[in-house]
Computed example of a mutant assay.
Amino acid sequence: MMRGKAILKSFKETRNHDVLFEYGRLLEQQGWKCIPIEGGYLSPDGSTIFICMRTPYEGQLLQYSSGGEESYLSQVKAMVESGDFTE
């Protein structure tokens, strides 16, 4: 399902959990929805989830919907290109 792991750069470098929630709040401003039972923030198109509350995936972007691989890969590419994430 996943090709390479994209992880939030600032979390990878610091392992500070506060940065996960700060980034989550930023995503909420961009239309992502906090889904506590899933442990993260779901993208507006439902293809991608940013994990902030589920070990060992904290800080990672994961594919959320089985049919949304193309959208997920596009989302990951955009977020890596933004400089916020690294693979």
Rank of each mutant, 00 (worst) to 15 (best):
G59I: 00
L61T: 00
R15C: 03
T55H: 06
N16I: 04
L20P: 06
L8R: 15
M2F: 02
S65V: 01
E70V: 12
Y64S: 08
S43I: 00
M79F: 05
G31T: 07
S82L: 04
Q75A: 05
W32F: 11
K77H: 06
E13C: 07
K77V: 02
E81Y: 11
I49T: 05
Q63D: 02
G59C: 10
E81S: 15
G67M: 11
L42T: 13
G59L: 01
G31W: 13
K12M: 08
V76G: 00
L27K: 14
R15E: 15
S47L: 02
L20S: 13
R54P: 00
N16Y: 03
M79T: 00
I49F: 07
D45E: 15
Q63G: 01
G67F: 03
I7H: 10
T48N: 08
I49Q: 01
G39R: 05
E70F: 03
A6H: 14
F11P: 00
F50S: 04
E87F: 10
D18P: 03
R15V: 12
N16L: 10
L27W: 06
K9L: 15
H17A: 08
L20K: 05
G24M: 14
Y23Q: 10
R25D: 14
V19D: 14
I35N: 01
S43R: 00
D18W: 09
Q60S: 11
V19Q: 13
Q29M: 07
G83Q: 14
F11Y: 15
